[in-house]
Design a protein around this nucleic acid. Structure first.
Length: 268
DNA sequence: CAATGATCCTGTCCGC
DNA sequence: TGCGGACAGGATCATT
C-alpha cells in the first residue's frame, strides 16, 4: 500500500546508501506534472551532489550543493528504484534521476500522484504543508496530544491521519497503533483519557521503530530502493486481518473514506 | 476554524 | 470470456 513514515525513512536511507556523494547529473520528467519547478530555482541545478538527506513526515528532501532541493512525495504508488541496468521495466517511470555512468534512480509511479518539486533550499517551507511534530521526536508526547486534541471531536482515527496534527502516519500504521493502544478508532479524539493518550504515544513510537527495523510494510506497491519488499507486513496485527491475536473477529469499517480495521473486543 | 466530500489516477478484483 | 463498477487512498481544494 502507500508509503508512510517507515517506508519513506527506508527509501531515504536507501538513497543515501546508493547515491551518497555521487553527483546527480540530470532530472528528466517523463510524465506531465510529476516534476514541478519553483520559479526561483538557482541555476544551474545540476550537476550537484546531495549534501543533506532529510525526511519530514512523508516527504523526502534532498538538499543539493547548488542551493536547490528536491522535495519528493511518493503518495500512494511512488517508488524510487536505483539501477545500473539499461533495460529496467519502464512502463510507469514518471521521472529519472541520472547519476554517473549507467547509474540512475527511477521514479516509478503507477497512479501518477507522486511529485518531485525542485525549489531553492530557502523556499522548501513554501512547498510543504503545515506539518505536526515528528512522531519519533521527544516533542510528540501525551502533553502535546492533549492540547492538539482539545477542539478535535472527530474520530481519533481521522485525527491521527491529519498530517498537521502529527506528520507521517497513514492508514496502516494508525490501525496498528490503535489496536496496540486498545483504543477504538471511532472514539472522539478530545474524549480520550490521559492514560489512553500516553498509550497512543508509546505505541506509535513502538510500531514505527519496529516497522523501520523491518524496512517498512509491503502490502502491494511499496518497494525499497533495491526493489525488494519490506517485511513488516508479516507483523501486522489488525490491518487486513480476519482475527486478532486473541482470536476475536476483526471488524472493518469506513472512516473518512478509508478502511479501518479493529478488534471490537480488545479496543474500547 | 472544524469537518466532510469530491478529486486525481490506474491496476486489480468481483459479480453477472 | 468480457465488461462495468467498486476499491485501494494521501493530499488538496471546495463546501457547509
Amino acid at each position: 500500500m502507500m508509503p508512510e513514515l517507515p517506508e519513506v525513512e527506508t527509501v531515504l536511507r536507501g538513497l543515501k546508501r546508493k547515491i551518497g556523494g555521487m553527483p546527480i547529473c540530470q532530472l528528466d520528467s517523463l510524465y506531465n506534472g510529476t516534476v514541478v519547478y519553483d520559479k526561483d530555482i538557482v541555476q544551474p541545478v545540476f550537476p550537484a551532489v546531495v549534501n543533506k538527506y532529510e525526511r519530514r513526515g512523508k516527504y523526502i528532501i534532498l538538499h543539493l550543493a547548488s542551493k536547490n532541493a528536491l522535495i519528493i512525495h511518493l503518495r500512494m504508488t511512488g517508488k524510487l528504484i536505483y539501477t545500473e541496468e539499461d533495460n529496467e521495466e519502464a512502463r510507469h517511470v514518471r521521472a529519472l534521476l541520472s547519476l554517473t555512468g549507467c547509474a540512475r534512480v527511477l521514479f516509478n509511479d503507477i497512479r501518477t500522484f507522486g511529485k518531485i518539486i525542485v525549489a531553492p533550499v530557502s523556499k522548501i517551507q513554501n512547498h510543504l504543508p503545515k506539518l505536526g511534530p515528528e512522531p519519533l521526536s521527544e516533542g510528540f508526547d501525551a502533553h502535546y496530544l492533549k492540547q492538539a486534541f482539545l477542539k478535535k471531536s472527530a474520530p481519533i482515527k481521522n485525527v491521527l491521519l491529519d498530517q498537521s496534527v502529527v506528520a507521517g502516519l497513514g492508514n496502516i500504521y494508525v490501525c496498528e497503533i490503535l489496536y496496540r493502544a486498545k483504543v477504538k478508532p471511532e472514539t472522539a479524539a478530545n474524549k480520550l483519557t490521559k492514560s489512553k493518550l500516553e498509550s497512543i504515544v508509546r505505541r506509535t513510537k513502538e510500531v514505527l521503530k519496529e516497522a523501520i527495523a523491518n524496512n517498512g510494510t509491503s502490502v502491494s506497491d511499496y518497494r525499497q530502493v533495491d526493489d525488494k519488499t519490506g517485511s513488516f507486513q508479516n507483523f501486522l496485527r489488525v490491518y487486513q486481518k480476519e482475527k486478532c491475536s486473541l482470536g476475536h473477529d476483526i471488524k472493518r469499517i469506513k472512516q473518512a473514506g478509508r478502511s479501518s480495521f479493529y478488534c471490537p473486543v480488545c479496543q474500547k
